[in-house]
Design a protein around this nucleic acid. Sequence first.
DNA 1: ACAGTATCTGACCGATCGGTCAGGTACGGT
DNA 2: ACCGTACCTGACCGATCGGTCAGATACTGT
Lengths: 189, 189
Amino acid sequence: MSTSAEDLRTIALTEFATSGYAATSLHRIADLAGLSKSSVLYHYASKDALLEAAVSPAIARLAEIMKSVASRPDTKASRREFIADFVDFLLEHRLEVHLFINQGPSLIDVPVADRANELVLNLAEHFATTSMSEEHRMRFGIALGGAAYMLVTQYTLGLEAAAPEETRAALITILSELLAPVPVSSNRK
Amino acid sequence: MSTSAEDLRTIALTEFATSGYAATSLHRIADLAGLSKSSVLYHYASKDALLEAAVSPAIARLAEIMKSVASRPDTKASRREFIADFVDFLLEHRLEVHLFINQGPSLIDVPVADRANELVLNLAEHFATTSMSEEHRMRFGIALGGAAYMLVTQYTLGLEAAAPEETRAALITILSELLAPVPVSSNRK
DNA sequence: ACAGTATCTGACCGATCGGTCAGGTACGGT
DNA sequence: ACCGTACCTGACCGATCGGTCAGATACTGT
């Protein structure tokens, strides 16, 4: 059945995200799947193709979110809705996000990486108002990189004691705080 | 002179942090330094030794900060001071921090990685009050991982247009906000 | 002039990498 | 019974990996 192909996708994604794309050999993926390296290359033509298969669903989903957000006016309500969508996206595709956030620069010449970087740029543009200060830009970056780091660390270290709903609520709170267009007063209270 | 050794350290650190430890070959480091691979191995006995040399100053500095913070009572003023110290640490050792934050799990069997993970744990404990909620733990992780990501992205993409002082001020503001022991009300205001 | 040390190099090693290929096995349709 | 297809495998390939080694070059103090 197609269980092997899907298993391979999952295993590869996990290894690529937690150990690094370059550091993960096809042999290791095959071992984890209980197959031979040749079988892995039967299902996916190359290591690059395996990476592409592993991350493209996440890219498609993100593109979807970006399209829907672009079609609506930029009100406070729509921003809140977007953050909720985005948090759900992060929770569901934490491995893929972590992979791109932290290994993006080194994944040149893998075509799917360009698509992803493009989307992140769109994402940044969506939050970039005309008066985008350095602090606002850093808020955006910290929110994105921090959330990706946190979710995978949680995953890697096995300390998933936290209830998913609690994690989700906390993420929404924190991201809202970081991404909210705060008044331009000097500092916090 | 020791310029070669120091150059190699810098080059290796940059490559390890931006492209990944496993993905960076000694050959590439040698090329970037204008030397042969053999010369690199003359200055540093192994790839592991090169990594250790590249990051140990940052580890020593962090240990120093942790020691000084442990010796003082945990007041609001000392927390503010610590955040300032920590931000300076992040700015000066952004590459090393990024390296450990994002490749820590895959750097097993490299002894210096254990030291670093230990310190990060100490760091977490320092912020962990008895009533550490899930949200607080996530705030800590997002602050750490987000800051590391932001600083290296800024570095990698060459968009260092921002004035260092502005970056520093923004970081202090944002980290203070994330790490502040906010009152335990249900949610933000 | 000499010896000593520091620096650097090319040739070489075994291991592992991603990938190819010929062939084996199991199964469903006819 | 036969064929086609899907799935899987071991043997093999060239390239590259980290690392070793013997020796070339150059700079030092004496």
